[in-house]
Simulated scan of single mutants.
Amino acid sequence: MNEVLERLELARDAVFQLVERWRGAPTQSPIVPGGNVAGTALIIVIAIMTFLACLTFGGVSLVRDSAAAWQSQISKEATIQIKPVEGEDMEALLARAAKIAEGFAGVTSARIVDRDATARLLEPWLGSGLDIEELPVPRLVVVSIDEESPPDFDILRAELVRSVPGASFDDHRTWVDRLVSMARTTVLIGMSVLALVIAATVLTVIFATRGAMAGNDHIIEVLHFIGAEARFVAREFERHFFRTAFKGALCGGGVAVLVFLMVSWWSSRNLATPEADQAAALFGNFAIGRGGYLGVAIIILLVSILTMITTRLTVITQLKEMDSRGSESS
């Protein structure tokens, strides 16, 4: 009995304080108490969700930028590959192929890939210290193309095959088109994952709001039925949850930015290694750029505002259900 009386007294004091607050007088007791265990857990959940959302957005930005670079390379470069032919001097064949390519209108330059560069290209598969003279390794000539008026690739290919033994011409269009298609698919998957993360965050906020209302149900009912508008009650909740979401989103976004900075720093420190070269070929230098960091800031604000809106709509819906139950019981 004493325990029931104590709970009634606490509810009465809380209602009196909230009534004073509703009337405009300052009070120290909000409807939703801050710093409780549920609030801390919600901050952690929102931080994790924001971290995942920022990582997904950053990855999508990297892949999108790489896809744009690949598309640009289609019209800028082509490759002449020359396989070793018995009785032929490889260096002479390379020089002849470069000269033929430079003679075509639309070709700005032809650069022979030297032995060291060739060995470095093969290092991820064949290891370091490779002597390409001991193996029948094809050699390459990189042909730079005028984007405005490219040459006739079919005629250039036919001339190279006719004049240079072991030569073949690749304009990279088939492979790069496949890579670009793969990148676009990856971007689509990334955006879907981002949408799922945001949806999960919204559902978490809805459950947290309902839990907070359930924990203060007796106070909210009394305050609501003595005349407090739904907007007043919803405003109390949305303020609390906006602050909670902003703290969590700021932590999650900050950790994501730190991850991107560390990966970019690692990439810049390992530019001369084969692993970094392969990674840079796919993702650039891992720098998401100004647009990426702006996107992280937008995600932080979006999560906070979306949490506030979700909380407001949840509270108003719950209060309407409360009114419906009251009407049915009467």
Rank of each mutant, 00 (worst) to 15 (best):
V255I: 15
A208Q: 07
A38W: 15
V202C: 11
A41W: 12
E9I: 09
E77W: 02
V141M: 04
R162N: 11
R64K: 11
T307W: 04
A67Q: 04
L271M: 13
A105K: 15
G190S: 09
L126N: 11
V222I: 15
T314Q: 08
S304H: 06
R7T: 12
I46S: 02
V257P: 01
T40P: 01
S304G: 15
L52K: 06
Q318W: 08
E238S: 13
L156F: 06
S168E: 08
E88G: 03
T314C: 08
S168R: 08
L94V: 06
T209N: 03
G295E: 01
T273Q: 11
A92D: 12
D277F: 02
T317G: 07
A234T: 12
R12P: 06
C251M: 15
K99T: 09
A38L: 14
H218S: 09
L8G: 09
E328A: 14
D217E: 14
M182T: 13
A249G: 08
N216L: 04
G295N: 05
T185P: 01
A195W: 13
S168K: 05
V259A: 06
P124Q: 08
S61G: 08
A256H: 03
M49I: 12
E328H: 12
G103P: 06
E134Y: 10
F286T: 00
V315Q: 02
Q278I: 08
I132G: 02
N36R: 09
Q17F: 05
A276P: 03
E123I: 04
R269T: 07
S304E: 04
I220D: 02
D152H: 13
R239C: 03
V142L: 14
A230G: 14
E238K: 09
V315C: 08
R120T: 14
L258C: 14
T314V: 12
A110C: 11
R290A: 14
G103R: 04
L301N: 12
A183S: 10
I100W: 01
I44T: 14
L250V: 09
A183P: 01
W125F: 11
G248W: 03
T244D: 04
S61R: 00
G58M: 00
G34F: 13
T314I: 12
S168I: 04
R12N: 10
T50R: 04
P30G: 10
R157L: 03
I46W: 01
L8T: 07
V137E: 02
L62H: 00
E6G: 04
N216F: 07
E9C: 08
S267K: 00
D89S: 14
T40D: 05
T310G: 15
A272W: 04
C54P: 05
G253K: 02
V193H: 01
G211T: 11
T56C: 06
T118E: 10
T273K: 05
L5G: 02
E134T: 13
V137I: 15
D65P: 01
P136D: 11
A199E: 10
W266Q: 09
G248K: 03
A53K: 01
P84N: 04
L302M: 15
T79F: 02
M191T: 07
I43E: 03
S192V: 15
L94T: 03
T27D: 13
T311Y: 04
V303S: 01
R96P: 03
I198R: 04
G35P: 08
V255W: 06
E88M: 06
S149I: 07
D116E: 13
M262W: 14
W70L: 01
V37T: 11
E133D: 15
R157H: 12
V303I: 15
T185Q: 09
D65Y: 00
A92Q: 12
